[in-house]
Design a protein around this nucleic acid. Structure first.
Length: 831
DNA sequence: AGCACGCCGACT
DNA sequence: GTCGGCGTGCTC
């Protein structure tokens, strides 16, 4: 047993109230602090409190609940201070956090970390203070100590990062320790509120000159001041004040071209005065709701059906083909809910990339809409947080992190593009799926959830088919526009001398020529970036692979490098085969870079551009490229999946899928679902307005069933096909690997995890795949992989893909320190 | 996350 | 012999 430390003796008062406090750290369970008598009233669930954890680190923790039984196992430290007078959130959010932590196997602290804007979770900063009673000579100090002491003597206070600058080494801490020992300084832990109201200085005319005559008098007798510039400034002020009412200092100075000194002159003359005021960072638009369109009969039906279904179902799936006008249905529903006084959350994956939808919603709901995503600056996020909490914000348009906002009267959550995998957070914990979490979150408010997609995920579709969710379909394009005509082009007939793949069939070439002639735009889709994703030694068949990942390396011509698209490592180009020494490499396949080059050659008069991860690295590159394409300054756009993300282009009448084999043989566990989704989304780009679009799919395996489903836009059959295939090839192995991992569990945590897993498996689709990171798991993995090779049907490429995929997924699991969850198998039942 | 404690390699 | 690397464990 530990002996009593002085600290313990000191704090061992007779406290009668205790609080469970969340700290934004990965603590295995929540800690308890004692509530001193004078804070008893103020400490409530949802209030932030200042507490010490460890030696002297201070945190702003969040009170989860209070209780009176004194803990037996330890001596709680007292809460130092209360930071809020109003709770930071509502009880629903705390319940939600608890669920997330449980369901996604992480700590509540980690959830808190993800949920709260960074400016609301403070932790202390070490501040060094000069010790006034220190009088000895500085001679005893070594060089480093002396430098710090001298700076401290001058400034009396130093922050830790300032000390780091002085010493520019990592040796900051030992030096400070010695200085404390020598009583040169004291340390202080400072907890600072990071959120700052934005203050702006406004300029106001002194009341003495409010009357016209007084002002005219002043201007007529200006000569006495000998300050013509100040008069100009005053005139500018009067003009601004008359035209817009409020005048801010920066605006006034900018518009008048005057200096701050000149303004100061006027203030000193008691003509103007200045005042600091807190302002909103979020520019406010008028809070009108303008619905200036009529739903088509089909949309009207869909909207009505959704509302009826909501009477008995909590969740509804709106399956609407691209260009069917789902957004308009959403707008009507949002309107209905806000008229009932409810708040609405509209979630979109990767909102930072979708300016089109923001503009559309702002047009209808103006200032009622707030936008929230992780790229917002921290102060703005705090402001939105508070507005949602108070109920001032009625509609929030946000990315997955918006599910954590403290809604009060939540009525509806819309998860648009619900199939999109970026709803799943992979790293760091909490590894939540925002669509599933939203369903649980909504249930806490008795709120409704609408999932929308042109290509629903298998799990949502299953739920709808089984009657758990309502299902509403919108299978025709808005305004009776026809679905695009889909043409499948066999590339087997065209064989090249070196057996490399055909990029451009005569059919597609002809179609592009026609489109260009008609002054229309063309999208060419290829699911691989880089120049050549597959190089093989022409003599021995050796393929360059990444050292870390076993992934084949892609050649990037512009950078003249080989790159691994899994981990990002780059390698110099290989000219000589490492296996046999020959220098005959064949570039087997093609990526967007090579296509762009080829298209530029084949259509020298057309304006060609490329959109992929490599070409839109910069912050605005993506937006700019889209704008150029919208304005028809580009004729042919070559790109990866990026070109299909929720964009509407009016003048596109041809979409080419250059290598559909590459999609159909995806190394993925949900091969056909993904393939179908991709093809459907790509083809949805063509002929949105006039229905005159055409999609050409170049493929060698023309018999692949998915192609048939795509041609008929037949989701039902695809779904059946997918279920059968996944169960046969993919499902049992994963159920097995999970079982094997947990049979060999050797940590307590795995016990807990296994319980979750069993629950998941009972439903046949468990949400977790995880395991403790240790050599045992590695051994099992290897053992398992060799087993897999025997059990799977002997279709070599498929085995390769399974092997690669399992290796990659397990790598993710092992790379995580303790355990992790990977959303490989879809959640069917989040509640 | 910090920070302490503790156990092995290159240096005043 | 020590300084310092980071592996492990604990913090109410």
């Amino acid at each position: 047993m530990n002996t009593h430390s002085p600290n313990q003796l000191f704090t061992n008062h007779t406290y009668t109230l205790f609080a469970e406090v969340l700290i934004p750290l990965a603590l295995p369970k929540n800690f308890t602090w004692a509530v001193p008598d004078h804070l008893k009233e103020a400490v409530q669930p949802g209030i932030r409190v200042e507490v010490v954890l460890g030696k002297n680190k201070k945190y702003a923790g969040l009170v989860k609940k209070t209780f009176t039984e004194k803990p037996e196992a330890f001596n709680p430290k007292p809460i130092l201070n209360v930071l809020d007078d109003v709770p930071l959130l509502h009880p629903e959010q705390l319940a939600f956090w608890e669920w997330i932590a449980d369901y996604y196997m992480c700590t509540e602290g980690e959830v808190m970390q993800a949920a709260i804007p960074s400016n609301l979770k403070l932790s202390s900063e070490t501040v060094l203070m000069w010790n006034d009673s220190y009088e000895d000579e500085m001679i005893e100090l070594d060089d480093e100590e002396f430098m710090v002491a001298e700076a401290l003597n001058l400034k009396k206070e130093l922050r830790l990062n300032e000390v780091q600058q002085i010493l520019d080494a990592s040796h900051v801490y030992p030096v400070i320790k010695r200085l404390i020992e020598k009583q040169v300084c004291l340390v202080w832990e400072e907890l600072k509120e990071k959120y700052k109201e934005k203050k702006e200085t406004y300029v106001i005319l002194q009341p003495a000159y409010h009357k016209e005559e007084a002002l005219a008098d002043l201007l007529n007798n200006w000569q006495q001041y000998k300050a013509p510039k100040q008069m100009e400034l005053l005139m500018a002020y009067i003009h601004l004040q008359r035209t817009q009412g409020e005048v801010s200092q920066p605006e006034l100075l900018k518009k008048s071209g005057a200096t701050a000194a000149q303004l100061k002159g006027l203030v000193e003359k008691n003509i103007l005065r200045t005042e600091k005021r807190a302002v909103d960072r979020i520019g406010s638009l008028p809070k009108d709701v303008i619905i200036d369109f009529e739903l088509s009969p089909l949309q009207q039906q869909a909207a009505e059906k959704i509302e009826t279904l909501f009477d008995e179902k909590q969740v509804c799936l709106l399956h609407g083909v691209t260009a069917s006008g789902k957004t308009q249905v959403y707008v009507k529903l949002i309107e209905a809910f806000i008229r009932k006084g409810k708040q609405v959350l509209y979630m979109l994956p990767e909102i930072a990339l979708t300016t089109q939808i923001i503009r559309r919603l702002q047009k209808h709901f103006g200032g009622n809409i707030s936008i929230y995503h992780s790229k917002f600056n921290p102060n703005e996020r705090v402001e939105i947080w508070n507005k949602v909490k108070s109920g001032e914000a009625r509609i929030v348009l946000g990315a997955r992190s918006a599910v954590f906002l403290p809604f009060r009267d939540l009525g509806l959550i819309i998860a648009d593009e619900e199939h999109d995998s970026s709803y799943k957070q992979q790293e760091p914990a909490p590894r939540y799926h925002a669509r599933d979490a939203a369903i649980y979150y909504a249930s806490l408010f008795q709120a409704k959830v609408l999932l929308g997609s042109a290509t629903p995920s298998i799990e949502s579709y299953t739920n709808a088919q089984q009657g758990k969710y309502g299902l509403v379909q919108l299978m025709e394009r808005y305004g009776n526009v026809a679905m695009p005509q889909i043409e499948i082009v066999d590339v087997k007939r065209v064989i090249k001398k070196d057996h490399s793949k055909v990029m451009l069939t005569p059919e597609l070439h002809q179609a592009i020529t026609q489109s260009l002639h008609d002054k229309k735009q063309i999208i060419l889709f290829q699911n691989r970036r880089g120049y050549s994703p597959y190089q093989i030694c022409g003599v021995c068949g050796w393929i360059p692979q990444c050292k870390n990942c076993d992934v084949t390396l892609t050649y990037h011509k512009s950078k003249n490098k080989l790159a691994c698209h899994y981990c990002g490592t780059t390698y110099p180009v290989i000219y000589t085969c490492s296996a046999c020494g020959s220098n005959r490499f064949i570039q087997k396949n093609f990526g967007t870079e090579k296509i762009e080059e080829m298209i530029t050659e084949a259509f020298p008069d057309a304006r060609t551009a490329r959109m992929d991860y490599d070409s839109v690295k910069g912050k605005h590159d993506h937006d700019n490229l889209i704008k150029l394409f919208e304005q028809q300054k580009i004729d042919i756009l070559v790109g990866t999946q990026m070109v299909v993300k929720g964009l509407d282009f009016e003048h596109v009448n041809l979409v080419g899928i250059l290598d559909a084999d590459g999609i159909l043989n995806f190394a993925d566990f949900r091969v056909n679902e993904r393939a179908y989704q991709l093809m459907e989304q790509v083809s949805g780009r063509a002929g949105r307005k006039d229905g005159l679009g055409k999609v050409m799919i170049q493929v060698s395996n023309t018999e692949h069933p998915v192609l048939g489903f795509v041609q008929q836009h037949n989701y039902q059959q695809l779904f059946q096909y997918e279920m059968e295939n996944r169960q046969r090839f993919f499902y049992p192995p994963f159920a097995r690997i999970i079982q094997v991992i947990f049979k060999h569990k050797d940590q307590l945590i795995a016990e807990e995890a296994a319980q979750h897993m069993v629950n998941g498996l009972k439903k046949d689709f468990g949400p977790y795949v995880f395991g403790p990171a240790n050599p045992v798991v590695n051994r099992i993995r290897n053992q398992y992989l060799s087993e897999l090779l025997i059990k799977l049907p002997r279709k070599a490429p498929l085995i390769q893909q399974c092997k690669l995929q399992i290796a990659q997924q397990i790598t993710i699991i092992n790379a995580t320190k303790r355990y992790s969850s990977v959303h490989i198998i879809p959640d069917i039942d989040p509640v």
